[in-house]
Design a protein around this nucleic acid. Sequence first.
DNA 1: GCATAGATCTTTTTT
DNA 2: AGATCTATGC
Length: 757
Amino acid sequence: MTTASSPSTGQTSPLSQLNDPQRQAVTHGNGPLLILAGAGSGKTRVITFRIAHLLSQGIAPWHILAVTFTNKAAGEMKRRVRELVGEPAHAVWVSTFHSFSARFLRLEHEAAGLPKEFSIYDDDDSTRLVKRVVKDLNLPERTYTAGVVKSRLSAAKDRLQDPRAYANLAHDDFGRRIAEIYAEYQARLQSAGAVDFDDLILRTLSTLETNESLRQRWQARFLHVLVDEYQDTNAAQARLVGILAEPERNICVVGDDDQSIYAWRGANIQNILGFAKTYPDAVTIRLEQNYRSRPNILEVAHAVVSKNLNRHPKKLWTDKHPGEKITLILAPDDWAEAEMVVGRIRLLRERDGLNGADCVILYRTNAQSRAFEEAFRRHSVPYVLVGGTRFYQRAEIKDVLAYMQLTINGNDEIALLRIINRPKRGIGEASQEKLIAACHAARRKWVDFLADSDAVAAAVGPRAAAAIAQLSLQLNRLKAERTGMGMSDWCKHLVETVNIKQIWEEDDPLQAESRRENVEELVAAIAEYETTTEAPSLSGFLEQVALVADIDSYDSQPEAVTLMTLHSAKGLEFPVVFITGLEEGLFPLSRSMEKPETLEEEYRLFYVGATRAKERLFLTYARTRHRFGPTGSMKSRFIEEIPRDYLDIENLIPDTTLEPGGLGYDAPGRTWRAGGFLNNARRGQSVVRRDSEPTLPRTGVAASLQAGTVIRHPKFGEGEVLAIRGAGDGTTCDIAFRSGFTKTLMVRFAPLEILRQ
DNA sequence: GCATAGATCTTTTTT
DNA sequence: AGATCTATGC
């Protein structure tokens, strides 16, 4: 992670490669230890060296537990420990919170009250279950939307409240209903033999807390617990590692409050800020020397994050040469922004001898990747995209996985309902509803219920009943066949027997080909798992699949520029970083601007992004952007926070001046005209590229509306604009139509044609 | 039970 | 604008 020389074996003592505070942290003896490690201060180095140090002190490797958030970070940590100590590294427990918990629950499934082969529900599965529950409780789906319910449940789980505790605290009708949903959701998980992501941690915690002898056994197992990215832990996670570290309390946590960017997922910054209160005898060590970035980059990052009120005042320092100024690129729109970035990268490659793989493009939302992908393809520059729709989330993959899952856990309701009529077997929605009602009314498990042909026949018509008998038979046969063959061959066989490809043809024949390819990739992934894992098992594979993030499998490829969100970039570093889309409402995101706490998190996100850069940092702004239609925007407040001396500004917006109060742009989405836009040759090209429509983009029309404009609407006919209200995405206009009525329309959606200004 | 057209929401970030 | 969900008619 640092640019300092890599640890050489032999010769010098590893400790001589460390600075004073780093060495103190590494050699700290027993008792709680808090390491406040700024960005690029050699945090991973300290953790790995500390593990090596503990081993050298005679601690057995299996007595050490190191926990991180991503599999990638865990893998990296393991690799580096192995570099330092060789084979013993193998026996050190290095894992993520979630994979540790999954492993724990497999081992202790009885005490945890779970079947051995429990399913792990990812986000999509748990959303489906929430919807199912809301429907089965006969609650209005509009009020209790999956999004609202899930955020409530997740918040409850973050606070360690079970359904009963939640119900007791509910003070209004809505809260009581949520409590009902929560209780039913958990009951359904239980009878499906499944846990969701939050439950992995919570069940591990409650199993440890309620079972004393088991707890003592696990506590004895770990004499030293090390936690990375402690600022991102939630209540359950902090408590989990706290318990495991008892009674010795050899807990070493590493983190940086300035890099806390997961509060929205329940991370509690108080865990790190209040660590010294929880452990009064904790030793605190600060790592403030940065080995990664040029001073100019650090200054800019600091200028922004230091505006936050809720933080420990601190400032990183480095003895490097200042480096170049930060380049701020002002582009007229997102298309030009992407062009500029690609152009700069080509220049860096040709003139400065940099490799594409040295560069990363960061953005706030995944949707922004598209413009860059197009630009890279236009210019034939290789790139890798991290994130977006994950491979294992794709419908065709989840279908296959659901079949596989059902052969090991036949009670998995979500998997069952996913495939019960895919491919179509004549078990339609009505039959499905009847089955669900009957199965739950009888309080039976699915395996049991479906095998009972009388019960099924009583619930649904004869055709559906026959189809269900077929399906159960098929699943049982597949299950039996599994023992006889290799996993990947079996998967291939499954895809054939079930006739999975029929699903794709039913859904969308155009995409059938790419779906087939994806499933082939899945088979290949299983084959790889099979050959590279010590004791491969189907449930092991499915678990791995549920717990991988896209970032985990990310490896920079030769020559390829990386594209990812700011969140994904945490923990990585690149010589050249582009932070893009620096516009009010996008970064910081408008939803985050409502509350001071979430706005501060955006500042930290900027800090995380900027401190990824070793040599050069570029910031880009696009005056208009195609979001739901183009919207004009003002430059991000982050830009305003940066002292001008550090900036090299490239203004590509025509007819604007850079002046004192700002960077010279017009009010959002109002003053520029579609016509003027198109007259510019370069812009014209961009518009044609983007929408193949030969006419003016509607968006341009919307932008030139003003009171008095006469328009035509395909449905309502001719009318006159009375007023424009609001700004940005939410802009509406009142229009008086000739036919006599007045209507308020969303400017960005209304298909208006301008007749007269 | 299924196909189609209309309605509605979406885009924050992820284990 | 586009995807996804819902309502309706066959």
